[in-house]
């Protein structure tokens, strides 16, 4: 018991010091004032009879980084997969409520999930480049859209993912020959090559070493200039460092609080959020 209390205090001190050093409120405000691009209304998800997400309503502003945090099994990854309908691939999964992209409900009958995923790219937890050349990895998204990919497209995407300088002389070699961090940046290049509006990231740094992870974090900040980033993370310091808005999910798939990142970490309205952030549970 006393040990738990101790670690809670430590985490509290750590997160507070992070807030003061890493979050820039000015930038946060600028970004969160922009228009809403993605919105969910009363979104609930069931796997068979189990409810994974309960009535989540959230508005995600354009050109911002929105972090989804919460303990394991809280539904944050499920929520992410709802946004580009990757949940469609899971047979037992049932979605209720609405997800709108620029006002259009993506669960409408006339929406093709394939077309939706061309607007909303995704980066996964474990780097998963195709066992193809670096170039082919980057051009894949364009090719399945029937667009021919030029060398400029490849260069632009790889520069956008801060990988160009490291791989420009080996575009023909396999994406799997790269290090883990480079592979993940290749996956980011692959996601931005077709120029989507939104990029979803599901714990993109959890399989990487700290140096590689920090490169990805820097990159995410740059990406928000052009894209809207929604990122699931287990790492609260990471959420505090990189996001403009933070949504806290708790067990049971409930969205407990959603606000500017600075507010969530400095002065959360909900006691449970404070308990979670200060490490009392989760």
């Amino acid at each position: 018991m006393s040990q738990n209390q101790q670690s809670g205090d430590e985490a509290s001190a750590e997160s507070e010091s992070l807030i003061t050093t890493d979050v820039q409120p000015a930038e946060t405000n600028r970004r969160s004032r922009s228009a809403t691009i993605l919105e969910t209304r009363d979104l609930s998800v069931y796997y068979g009879d189990d409810r994974a997400l309960t009535d989540v309503s959230i508005e995600i502003p354009e050109h911002s980084v929105t972090a989804l945090i919460g303990p394991s099994g809280c539904g944050k990854s499920t929520f992410l997969r709802c946004l580009n309908r990757m949940n469609d691939l899971i047979d037992a999964c049932r979605v209720e409520g609405e997800v709108t992209l620029r006002g259009k409900n993506v669960y409408d009958e006339d929406v093709d999930p394939v077309a939706l995923r061309r607007q909303i790219g995704q980066v996964f937890q474990k780097p998963n480049p195709f066992p193809k050349s670096i170039r082919d990895n980057v051009t894949y998204g364009l090719e399945v859209q029937g667009k021919s990919a030029t060398d400029e497209d490849v260069e632009r995407a790889l520069k956008g993912a801060a990988l160009w300088d490291e791989v420009k002389d080996q575009l023909g070699s396999s994406g799997l020959d790269l290090s883990g961090g480079q592979q993940q940046r290749l996956c980011i290049a692959r996601a931005i090559a077709p120029d989507p509006e939104v990029i979803l990231m599901d714990e993109p740094t959890s399989a990487l070493d700290p140096v590689a992870a920090s490169k990805i974090e820097d990159l995410i900040d740059d990406l928000a200039e052009e894209y809207t980033v929604v990122i699931v993370t287990h790492n609260m310091q990471q959420a505090a460092r990189i996001s403009d808005r933070t949504a806290v999910f708790l067990t049971g798939g409930e969205l407990v609080e959603y606000d500017d990142t600075a507010t969530i970490f400095e002065d959360p309205a909900d006691d449970r959020v404070e308990d979670y952030i200060t490490g009392k549970f989760g």
Binding site: V114, R117, Q122, N128, P129, G141, V144
Partner: peptide
């Protein structure tokens, strides 16, 4: 073939 590769393909809007 790892499912992560299929996911990557679907995530890029492949049929």
């Amino acid at each position: 073939v790892p499912d992560s590769l299929r996911q990557a393909g679907y995530g890029l809007g492949a049929t």
